[in-house]
Each structure stands twice: as C-alpha cells, then as structure tokens.
C-alpha cells in the first residue's frame, strides 16, 4: 500500500529527492512510454503547468515514487483551459476554486496490475481523500477514454464537459469526478482499508485559498 505525500510550494524543500525521482519517472512514462512529449536533455519531464499553484500527491512505497497525481486549481491556467478548451462544448471550461484539474498520473511498470486492488486504485483513493479534506467538490480534466471504466468500477460519478474526441491518434474526454464522502467510502471498501493514506509534512497550503488567490489577483 502506498502512502501519498502532499507536496507543493510550501513544503517542496522537504522532498527534493522524491520530487526529482517523480520528474524522472514522468519522463520515463510521458516521453518514452506514451511518446506524448519530446525527450528532455536532463531526463526530467516538466511542463508549463508545474508552477507554484500545483499540488502533487507522490505515492511512495518501499522508498520509491511509484505513482503520482498533480492537482491544479481550475481558476489558474491549466491543461483544459489552455490546450483543450474546445472539448468542453456542453458546459464551457469550468473555472471554480473548488474544482481541481487532475493530471500527470502514472504507475511505474512493475506496480501495474489488471485487477482493481492495485496501485492505481490506491492513488485514486489518495486523490479522493485529499480532495475531500481540502473541501473540493470535483477533480478531473482531460482523460483517455480507454481508462474511464476504472471510475465506474470505483463507483465514481464522472460528469462529461463535452464529447469524446480523437486528438493525435488517441481518444480523450474532459470529465470531472464528484468529490464526496460516498466516493471515498467506495474506493476504501475496494481496497479494504478504513484509514488515511495521506501524509502531510512541514508547512501546508490550503488548496481553496490558493485557488481563490487566482481570482482575486488584479487583472493583467
């Protein structure tokens, strides 16, 4: 079972090694396995959304970063607003402090499994727990349609913002998952746990307060 460490601008200094490992695993996955991003000379994958507004959940097991999630307030520039706004034809691009965009999730190859009780589900559990703790009401964003049944298996409700669409040979959909106590209970039940798997070290940052800041910042 992973423990998911909350890492953001406030406490990043406590996680230098883990964060570097996370960037290297991202490079393995998004550059070499997915081919979505060009190789980076330093072997670390970063993009324009790795800013101080982002909060990372690093899933650590046996002293390794085995899985991750990046959460960005939708009030900040995020992947859906900057790259895929055309995929929200029903609702428009959601911009709400209590809606977080969830991206940059991978699972290292030796921790992937077909069953439901695996590292991916543990990460999902961590995201739901964190989101509920922080008072969020939805998490999501651009996702591969292929993986959507996983949300169903967790009994999560995912609201589509538009139709699925093929981009660069892959099918995606923009959808946001409802955050609530029931969703956390159902994923915990599948994993057979009733305790927290989130770890917080050092100074913390309230996700909602940070998200609110983006709205209050003077127009540029």
């Amino acid at each position: 079972m992973i423990t998911a460490h909350v890492v953001n601008a406030q406490n990043k200094h406590l996680y230098e090694n883990e964060f570097d490992e996370f960037l290297r695993r991202r490079h393995d996955f998004f550059v070499h396995q997915k081919g979505w991003r060009p190789p980076s000379p330093d072997g670390r994958e970063r993009d324009q959304f790795d800013t101080d507004a982002a909060t990372y959940l690093l899933g650590i097991e046996d002293d390794r970063v085995v899985t991750s999630a990046r959460l960005i307030p939708t009030t900040e520039p995020h992947m859906v607003s900057e790259v895929f706004p055309h995929m929200c034809e029903i609702t428009g691009v959601p911009r709400r402090p209590d809606w977080a965009e969830w991206t940059r999730t991978f699972v290292v190859p030796d921790r992937r499994s077909a069953g439901l009780r695996g590292t991916l589900t543990e990460l999902c559990c961590a995201v739901m727990e964190y989101a509920l703790d922080e008072g969020l009401s939805a998490v999501g964003g651009i996702q591969e349609t292929y993986f959507m049944p996983h949300h169903g298996a967790l009994k999560w409700r995912a609201e589509p913002m538009g139709m699925a669409r093929e981009e660069n040979g892959e099918w995606y959909i923009v959808a946001y998952i409802d955050v609530n106590e029931k969703a956390l209970q159902s994923v915990r039940k599948i994993l057979g746990i009733d305790h927290s798997i989130i770890v917080r070290r050092g100074p913390q940052m309230s996700f909602l307060e940070r998200a609110q800041k983006a709205i209050e910042a003077p127009a540029r």
Partner: peptide, 8 residues
C-alpha cells in the same frame, strides 16, 4: 476497446 478490471 476499453479497460477492464477483470480481464485483459
């Protein structure tokens, strides 16, 4: 094709 939690 889609992910299945029970099968390939």
């Amino acid at each position: 094709p889609m992910l299945s939690v029970h099968h390939w």
